[in-house]
């Protein structure tokens, strides 16, 4: 791991329960600038809950999360300001259906960063070009395919210039032929140095793009390692079993 100044998330003893159900139990880890952390694990093991805790969509029931040195679990902390720096991409895209693609992308920069319309649109168009969807600027989300929607969801987050991007199964809701186009955008992003935390079942992608793979099971990080080691020499028996099923 890299030196302290590069730590984006410092997760200390994170716990989360829904009522009686303990989903995350005393998770501690750090996520540093430039890392591409891929989270894998069986369904229902708490991967989404962990990811959603990082921007406090789920409120932890114990422990601390420091983001860029500040404790975002502190009730006095202005979480809205920090969320501007933490992009998030969902399984089901969640584009705003009442707004055009361009409006989807410029809403937050204009309202939250107080950018002018021209400035926000220029940045949005530049990002649209990067993902090859500039001709969709004035379309509505319902006119796009799933893969296109997800690419837009990614660039919508990028319009806020986030320091880190969170992805929760970004390709799980897509038809198989559209998975590639979304993974390509994510690979590009990783190559560009973006810090990313990705929950996915795409093991090939994890191996190729990830800098660290994390196996979450029964509310714990049971194993984490470089992609090479993770897949070649798994130690935890549950991980071995998991890999034998998915590979």
């Amino acid at each position: 791991m890299q030196d302290n100044s590069m730590v984006l998330f410092d997760i200390q003893d994170l716990c989360k329960s829904f009522g009686e159900l303990k989903v995350l139990e005393h998770i501690s880890t750090r996520i540093c600038q430039g890392e591409v952390v891929v989270i894998v694990g069986p369904s229902g093991s708490g991967k989404s809950t962990f990811l959603r805790s990082l921007n406090l969509l789920e409120e932890p029931t114990g422990g601390k999360i420091l983001f860029e040195g500040r404790d975002i679990t502190d009730p006095k902390c202005d979480i809205n300001r920090h969320r501007q720096k933490i992009g998030m991409v969902f399984q089901h895209f969640h584009l705003f259906p009442h707004k055009t693609i361009l409006e989807n992308m410029t809403l937050a920069p204009m309202k939250l960063l107080k950018k002018s319309k021209q400035e926000a649109e220029a940045k949005a168009m530049q990002l649209l070009e990067r993902v090859g969807l500039e001709e969709k600027a004035n379309a509505y989300p319902s006119q796009l395919s799933g893969g296109q929607k997800q690419r837009i969801a990614i660039v919508r987050s990028l319009c806020m210039d986030p320091d880190v991007m969170l992805f929760d199964e970004p390709t799980s809701a897509l038809d198989p032929e559209m998975v590639g186009e979304v993974l390509n955008v994510m690979s590009d992003l990783a190559r560009g140095g973006m810090t990313m935390v990705i929950v996915t079942h795409e093991m090939g992608f994890a191996k190729e793009v990830g800098t660290r793979i994390m196996f979450i099971d029964e509310g714990h990080i049971k194993e984490e390692n470089t992609p090479k080691e993770f897949f070649a020499n798994p130690v935890n028996p549950r991980l071995k079993e998991f890999l034998s099923k998915v590979l």
Partner: peptide, 19 residues
Amino acid sequence: GQFEAGRSLGFSYAQTMLY
């Protein structure tokens, strides 16, 4: 999900409702 998308971009509860 609409609500969460809004909040994750940094909008407050009230802004998410409004916009």
